[in-house]
Design a protein around this nucleic acid. Structure first.
Lengths: 344, 344
DNA sequence: CTCTGATATTAAACCGGTTTAATAAAGGGC
DNA sequence: GCCCTTTATTAAACCGGTTTAATATCAGAG
């Protein structure tokens, strides 16, 4: 493809002028500009993105990164992404999804600077290494979710108040009279799990009800969400651990619970109540019975994160901000007041 | 940040050697390499991505583009993306999601070369302009879905056989005795809509049943999927247009149909049968009644597209390929043989 | 008519790597 | 000990833009 020198030569101007015609950073005589544009069109010339980036030190690209192990985007992620993309679009940024592992990126053959102006981190984990060695001279980062404490003073994040939310949900069930509440939490690694666990415990403490530790379970990374709900319910049941309510991490986990319950002859909500930390408002109402859950405003999370990041890219001295996006309970028909078991 | 010259100077070697230590394209004495690496670590040096890209003419980035108007990713897109990402990951590519409009990218201030090694196009439309002026010297493109005929000789694509699928579904319903089959198709612009419409018509033709044109409807871009199903069903009903089966574009549209039917006192599948072109196998079984649909293998579509593209990036003379990913019907409980209306 | 300031243009430096072609050093065969 | 390879290293050219600093042009003021 033609380069800027070719255009300059044919248009009889210097490359600096050609550059000015395209970047519009300096005035160029109308007739000269038209001649340049004309030649550029004939040669099918476009300024090279990477050459421009190299000299401007700006890529107009925002990164999106997942923790190493996780390969797949969930509905929740997609919702976040839609929010992020909306803001990117408004500000002329592209979005670079990076799922390469630290291992890969650590091989000397592949070590490079990060090709973005800033980055959004998804699903922070307690032992997350992505922020190790992060300094103010690196491209700015915004986390969606709560990063580990050790990074919080240095990095902005956007999150729901998961602890309060879990507390609220648990209290709701406790007030319905449930005392044995099975909590199918997300994976142990994620900070969100710790937050929700804390809220769950807090509600028990405040209600003066004894919390049974065996009723709190973490998801394993290698089992699909639906299976997690299904299998855990069956396991708990066959171990004769009694419970009258279940809180699940996502609606898919709740789905597994529904299916297991159906097979076990347990009916929802007569025998057990089910509640899901799920933002999926499209299908949840179609569950049988309609699933109670929360509204996380995931798209708003994404939008806010992107906005914060772009702000920070513009002005690297912008303050570190921790923004909480409001969430609220959406009660449908999967929870009922506790009643003593009908048969022995 | 330190650059390659700094490292070279402190390590007492030339920049070419430093380059060789990192790229590993030429042998370097072990002790020299170690010294360079040591200095690099002290200075926190990493080769600059853009500079490397500029001189290597390779970005290791794959683009993903949506048609201009559409801003949001659906579940189907996400599934595709997961497939694409999987292959990207295997081959060390990042994925650049580009939702900027041709307008934006056409402003002379923003005109640049495309910063990717190759690109995947989603949701091709009949009047799609993205491929205008595409030549072999541009980064290769693979389309997911069927591009307009005029491009097919030049560009590879991966698709389901939507025409055959639609025909098969329609025939299935015709064989159940349904003759008035409402088809809530996708938007008129998309090529997939045309393909499915053709299959739909073909089935009628072959069965010797008259097709009523008013039973074929296109979605409007500005109405959400659920509303589309809901509102169309209500409209058709209030216009006293009779029908006994509905084929919908997605499961969300089917959801709208379910809700409208419920409100209208029409029961599924007793009064009407419903079938959805939906790949969503997670929630469809939870519909009441469980929704019959198709399996599109969307992740496979994504994987195959990415594989084809990377192949083409490696070898620009690789042939243009049109790959059909198999799909099949998944029958659940939302369709029944036709019975004459119970009441007049 | 000269000077001043604003506007337009350019040559050269720069961004930070990779690659080429030349050269030096090290080893092997005879 | 000499010649021939092979292996390592380097200086310089190159990738394709933007930006700086110097210069040319032109209009208006005095």
């Amino acid at each position: 493809m033609a380069n800027i020198d070719d255009v300059a030569r044919l248009a009889g101007v210097s490359k600096g002028t050609v550059s000015n015609v395209f970047t519009q950073k300096r005035p160029v005589r109308r007739e000269v500009a038209e001649r340049v544009l004309q030649v550029a069109k004939e040669l099918n010339f476009k300024p090279n993105y990477w050459a421009r980036t190299l000299s401007m030190k700006e890529t107009r690209i925002i990164g999106l990164s997942m923790p190493a192990e996780r390969a797949k985007f969930s509905q929740f992620h997609m919702s976040l992404m839609n929010g992020v993309l909306q803001v990117c679009y408004d500000h002329g940024y592209r979005l670079l999804v990076n799922t390469l592992t630290p291992d890969y990126q650590g091989e000397s053959k592949h070590i490079t600077t990060n090709p973005v102006d800033g980055e959004i981190f998804l699903d922070p984990e307690q032992q997350d290494t992505r922020l190790d060695g992060y300094t103010d001279s690196d491209p700015p980062v915004v986390v969606i979710g709560r990063p580990p404490e050790r990074y919080q003073s240095r990095v902005s994040y956007v999150d729901n108040d998961n602890e309060a939310m879990a507390e609220q949900v648990t209290r709701y069930l406790l007030e319905l009279g449930h005392e044995n509440i099975l909590f199918l939490n997300a994976t142990n690694e994620r900070t969100v799990s710790a937050d929700r666990q804390r809220g769950y415990q807090k509600a028990f403490l405040q209600a003066g009800v004894r919390m049974r530790p065996e009723l709190h379970v973490f998801k394993r990374l290698d089992v699909p969400s639906v299976d997690y709900g299904y299998q855990t319910l069956k396991d708990v049941f066959s171990n004769h651990i009694s419970f009258s309510a279940v809180i699940t991490d996502t609606d898919k986990v709740a789905l597994g619970v529904y299916r297991a319950a159906m097979e076990l002859g347990i009916s929802i909500p007569q025998d057990i109540s089910v509640f899901a930390f799920s933002d999926n408002s499209v299908f949840a109402p179609e569950f049988n019975p309609p699933l109670s859950g929360v509204s996380l405003n995931s798209e708003e999370l994404g939008r806010e994160a992107a906005a914060l990041l772009i702000e920070r890219i513009r002005d690297n001295s912008a303050p570190v901000i921790h923004k909480i996006i409001p969430s609220h309970l959406v009660l449908r028909e999967s929870c009922r007041p506790w009643t003593p078991p009908s048969n022995t």
